[in-house]
């Protein structure tokens, strides 16, 4: 494919994306203004935007946002290294991997969230149980991807590290981690996404503060407009983080090629 055709395709794609975005918002605005979609359920996007602008000026909102952000960051601070370390440990031994991997895969399948009442009893209402469960949800995909990433490192590289007499730490730090970076990062990305899902869902069911809590709380207060504004914040935040992580991942893959 030559350059000009590539550029033209790129232009078509961007025009498509932008017009799809505008089209969706225009359609929603029209349908809600005319009353096809009940404004009680779904206020027009323009009103949500106005409400959002008002919300951004309140200290109340930033208190919620700060709480959610701290919980998310802490769950990643605990979950990401734990996942990588568990992954490295299991990748190092075939027996350990065969023994523990089914358990790890199982943890993926079960709804960890239902364990919240136990944590609630142990840690009390607050950020504790939320961070614990979200960190756990971060850890599992990171550990599984780390195993795949590290066992996928070419055996020639390992041989090279041996003939260079690397220490085990050097082997991990200088050879294994850089060459497994793209797959490893795919796990980290998945982990962070799970962290967002975990934090928001946990807040939704049990918190006393936070954006996820506020969505449920505003629903219970019949403050539908404010509920939608908070949903919009979560949607934009999650999409932005996912786009940023995609960008990093793309760069990592390009480095390798």
């Amino acid at each position: 494919m030559n350059g000009t055709q590539d550029d033209r395709n790129g232009a078509i794609i961007w025009i498509g994306r932008i017009s799809a975005t505008i089209g969706i918002f225009a359609a929603l605005e029209a349908l809600t203004q005319v009353g096809v979609i009940s404004a009680v359920v779904f206020p027009p996007p323009s009103k949500i935007a106005v409400e959002l602008a008002r919300l951004l000026g309140t200290s109340h909102f930033w208190g919620d946002a700060g709480r959610t952000l701290i919980e998310l960051v802490l769950s990643c601070v605990f979950g990401l290294p734990a996942g990588v370390i568990i992954g490295i440990a299991l990748a190092a031994s075939t027996t350990a991997r065969d023994v523990f991997e089914p358990y790890l895969v199982t943890l993926y399948a079960i709804p960890t969230v239902v364990f919240y009442p136990i944590l609630l009893a142990l840690m009390g209402l607050g950020s504790g149980p939320i961070i614990a469960i979200a960190a756990f949800m971060v850890m599992v995909p990171v550990a599984l991807n780390t195993i795949v990433a590290i066992t996928g490192v070419s055996s020639q590289l390992i041989k090279l590290s041996r003939s260079l007499r690397c220490t085990p730490l050097q082997r991990i730090w200088k050879i294994v981690l850089p060459s497994s970076a793209p797959v490893l990062f795919a796990g980290v990305k998945l982990g962070i996404m799970y962290g967002i899902v975990g934090t928001i869902s946990m807040e939704f069911i049990l918190a006393d503060k936070g954006i996820g809590f506020r969505v449920g709380n505003e629903y219970n207060n019949f403050a539908i407009l404010s509920m939608w504004a908070h949903i919009a914040v979560i949607v934009v935040f999650a999409m932005a983080i996912s786009a940023a992580l995609d960008q990093v991942e793309r760069r990592l893959r390009m480095d390798l090629q």
Binding site: M193, W228, S242
Partner: peptide, 24 residues
């Protein structure tokens, strides 16, 4: 190519927050 950013972006959104909307 047009749909990818929408799909991967929406995949990242915690689905449970639409539950109050569905309840409404």
């Amino acid at each position: 190519m047009i749909a990818t950013p929408f799909i991967s972006g929406l995949f990242a959104v915690p689905r449970v927050i639409v539950y109050p909307v569905l309840l409404a």
